[in-house]
Amino acid sequence: MIFSKILITISRIILPFLLMFGIYIILNGDISVGGGFQGGVIIATSYLLYYFIKGQHPFSLSKMLKIDKYLFIFLPVMVLISYFTRGYFFTNWFDLTYAYEIRRLFLVLLNLVIGLKVAIGFVSLFVVFIEEGNS
C-alpha cells in the first residue's frame, strides 16, 4: 500500500500536541469545563490518527490492555477507602476541615482513571474494526 508522505509528516508533528491537550483537559476537570470522558476521547483520537495514516501502532496494544486490568482493580480500592476515614462509602476521603487544595486530589485521581479507561476502550474497539477482514 502507498502511504502519502505529507500526511505522515504532519501527523507525526501533531501527535504530541494532541496528547498534551487531552491530558490538560483531564487534569483541569474540576476547575473548568472538561472532565474524564471528554479528555479520554481526545487521547483515543490522537492514537487513531497516527494508526489510520501510517499503519503501525504508536504504542503497543497489549501493554494498554494490561494497564486497563490494573485500573479495574484500582478503582474500587479508591472508592472504598472512605469507609475507614469518614464512615460513608462512595465519597471523598478527607473531612470538611481540610483546605480545598488537599481535597482536590481525590477528584483529579478519579478523573485520570476514568479518562484512561475510556481511551483504551475506544482504541481497542477501533483497532478491531479496522483490521477485520484482513488475513
Binding site: 472538561g34 476521547v41 475506544f122
Partner: peptide
C-alpha cells in the same frame, strides 16, 4: 461539557467509522 463531548465524538470518530 456536552458540547465538548459532542465535538470530539461527532466530528472525529463517526466520520472515521
Amino acid at each position: 461539557d456536552v458540547a465538548l463531548a459532542e465535538i470530539a465524538v461527532g466530528s472525529a470518530f463517526m466520520p472515521l467509522i
